[in-house]
């Protein structure tokens, strides 16, 4: 019996494709957040319904590492004493829980932009609501694809 032959009898190995998420912080299979629960949480955090607009979310089209996906949120605002962003709430709709982070800004921020790195168990949407100093709420969303990978070249 050849070497290769005997090897395949003895070694039954886990592969990437099968076991990629076994020890990761979020396994896709445990996801329980949904688009509805994510929106519900945003409503609670921001205490109201938001209009779409004023928010730009930058993120890679395809996450190169679902454990750390860079996300940049920019809110259109002059950031003056009279007119500024007070808070930015970020949630995701495909993780075990929808919450990601909430940020508080002040006129001293000068520019309403924050960058963070997010765990994403699977392809899902990042949803953002900004609370403005006049009490208005604005929302934006962006999908990030999380793939199995490994077949390019």
């Amino acid at each position: 019996m050849s070497q290769a032959r005997s090897l395949n009898r003895r070694t039954v190995m886990l592969t990437s494709i099968a076991a990629a998420t076994a020890l990761s912080q979020f396994a896709a299979a445990t996801a329980s957040a949904t688009p509805d629960s994510a929106k519900e949480l945003l409503k609670t955090l921001a205490r109201g319904d938001a209009k779409e607009g004023k928010i730009a979310i930058r993120a890679p089209e395809i996450a190169e590492n679902g454990n750390t996906v860079p996300v940049t949120v920019t809110v259109e605002s002059p950031m003056t004493d009279k007119d500024h962003v007070k808070a930015i709430h970020v949630v995701a709709d495909g993780n075990p829980n929808p919450g990601v982070a909430s940020f508080q800004l002040t006129p001293l921020s000068g520019k309403a932009e924050v960058q963070l790195r997010v765990r994403m168990a699977s392809t899902q949407k990042i949803l953002v609501v900004a609370e403005m100093s006049d009490g208005s709420l604005w929302s934006g969303a962006r999908e990030v694809k999380v793939t199995i990978g490994g077949c390019g070249g």
């Binding site: 290769a4 592969t15 990437s16 494709i17």
Partner: peptide, 22 residues
């Protein structure tokens, strides 16, 4: 299922060029 070029660290098995040579 058998395959090669897994992107995961620690994947075990004979090298594909040895297997193909044999």
């Amino acid at each position: 299922v058998a395959g090669w070029a897994s992107v995961n660290e620690g994947t075990q098995g004979p090298p594909v060029y040895d297997l193909l040579t044999k």
